[in-house]
Design a protein around this nucleic acid. Structure first.
Lengths: 337, 337
DNA sequence: TCTGGCACTCCATGTTCCCGAGTGCCAAGT
DNA sequence: ACTTGGCACTCGGGAACATGGAGTGCCAGA
């Protein structure tokens, strides 16, 4: 059905089209990649490939262009992830190492990835759900107002201002803090609700209303922040690519947290790297774009995802290499801090 | 030099050009705005306006287009800030009121502003410099590692992980925290360095190295975070405007924190609202764009700035109204929380 | 099964042409 | 001293048309 040479032809078409952005014809193909056959033969192969939907001509009498199906075959069977150069690795390492807190890690990561791939990079904040409590802090702000600060083992910090039902002395607050920490320290966020459930019963009666208020805010925070934060960078790279068509839609998608989440979220069979090509992805505005994504995390459990979005016509091996490498390094940094 | 009618003509040109995006000719002008004179007269006035650099023709035998100087005159003398409708005000209020922490306030503000003006909105986080310490927290993470959390009265939270030079018992940490808070509470961030200077001397000798480490990180945080965080939203609106030319540059500028900071930062004579039109702004990539900015803050002191960036050909009265209104509401929210 | 040849298609590019919107200027009117 | 109508002129942009070249499909021969 698809012999060795036809696959070689497809590979050549993808590579040429990616680098030139112009439909590639049989003659140029036979010359540039030494396939050892004549243009006429290549034409026959092309006809077969087109027959099966791997390539396509924009107009009669134009060269061929890969279809989404063609890219898919290329990614799955005809290419290998291209590792980064040593220099690039060093650059990543030093750039990420300079970050002082989670915000900055994420910020640097997204920029790094955008620059490395010359495309739009998307990074999700480490999931609250899968991390654990490191410390809970209750800070008195005013007579009846405190700030609740929740610090997770991934370095994430959530804060909330709480209005209390009554005036509370600082030492009672301090006690409450101690109790809370004793019982929550190291507790997985997902199990916080049950852990905390009968906690008010163990407190003096007069402290219960206050405790209840604080706990309800705490639980609320966990629920609301369930949805993850997500950031992107490198929008300028979109304009640089010849994205004149549909740029609007792409930018809109990028500003829709929900869409971004879904794009990054859905994984597929490949271990680690997910590639979603053009029409494969769920959002119609992104018909002409592909997503290369990977999970990252400290240790082996995946805490969040990051990836790159670009035209279907992208250099998949290189992009995949960059995404994989960055995901690994971020994981290391996260584990180390 | 510029009599009443010539000014009216200029105003009419700006308004028409803003709404149609096409060079406006004498005939259409005389008809649409009832100026009470003939096209020929309008032509004479136009010639005078062009003579003085307020308008310009793209080509001979085309209509006129306002120059930056023309827009400037329009903004300064020919237009009034247009207040928002009651419905819009309510929308702002309810939308902003739902925010639970500073991050979310800023996020919502920037989106709101982008949606309201259909342009790119830029919002700076409240300045660290001009706010005061509300609480300092030192959280033990591991034997020789603590997290320093700094909470300001603007609701901003900064955190840093610190490696200590030696193992420190929790009660010593607690003591240190108490001392720190006692001495820093309410202290303006800019005066933290001097306040903290002789603090180690008042501690037991064995605590001094640890205290020094922590304090140095604290000071470092203040310095590094001196530069403000800044976010933008609404990039899709750029694509919607006919920004085909220079879109690349604009997007690049938006991703350059430094450039953004400068754009927002420089104020001018007008109380509150700053308008910088096309070539007036310092960055060459933004030759075709204008910035409308305003300061905001809790109470009267300005904590940070926010604004909108769009094509020079924008509806200034409406945009200015939106920016001013949003700035005020954010101030209120900030003061109330 | 591959190859060279050949007729055909059609896009991209360049040229020409023409229309119309808009201008500048001038002479006449108020 | 302005304002106005008239008029010749300019120039951009779109339509119509020509052309060259890259690329294709197909076929007959090796």
């Amino acid at each position: 059905m698809l012999d060795e040479r036809k696959l070689a032809v497809l590979r050549a078409i993808v590579e040429d089209y990616v680098s030139t952005n112009e439909p590639v014809g049989s003659k140029a193909l036979a010359e540039r990649h030494n396939l050892g056959v004549s243009p006429a033969t290549v034409r026959n192969d092309m006809a077969a490939l087109e027959e099966q939907g791997y390539i396509q001509q924009p107009h009669t009498s134009a060269g061929r262009v890969p279809t989404d199906k063609g890219y898919r075959l290329f990614v799955d069977r005809l290419s290998h992830v291209k590792p980064l150069s040593a220099a690039e690795r060093r650059a990543i390492e030093t750039f990420l190492a300079g970050a002082v807190d989670l915000d900055e890690i994420v910020m640097r990561t997204v920029r790094l990835l955008a620059q490395l791939t010359r495309q739009v990079a998307v990074v999700q904040y480490p999931s609250l759900t899968r991390s654990a409590v490191r410390h809970v802090e209750i800070v008195p702000l005013a007579e009846r107002r405190v700030m609740l600060v929740l610090i997770t083992n991934t370095g994430r910090v959530e804060q909330r201002v709480i209005e209390l039902p009554e005036t509370v002395a600082d030492d009672r607050i301090a006690h409450l803090r101690a109790v809370l920490n004793a019982c929550l320290d190291g507790c997985g966020l997902s199990s916080v609700p049950e852990t905390v459930a009968e906690l008010p019963d163990r407190l003096p009666v007069e402290d219960r209303p206050v405790a209840a208020t604080i706990l309800s805010v705490l639980l609320e925070t966990l629920v609301e922040r369930h949805e993850e934060k997500i950031v992107f960078a490198g929008a300028a790279n979109l304009a640089a690519a010849d994205f004149s068509v549909g740029l609007r839609e792409v930018l809109e998608a990028l500003e829709e947290q929900v869409v971004l989440m879904r794009l990054l979220g859905e994984t597929d069979n490949l271990p680690g790297l997910t590639v979603r090509i053009g029409s494969e992805n769920p959002y119609t505005g992104l018909r002409g774009t592909s997503i290369v994504a990977a999970g990252y995390g400290a240790g082996d459990k995946e805490l969040a995802r990051l990836g790159v979005l670009g035209p279907t016509r992208m250099d998949y091996p290189v992009t995949m290499g960059a995404v994989r490498a960055v995901a690994r390094y971020v994981g290391q940094i996260l584990a180390g801090s």
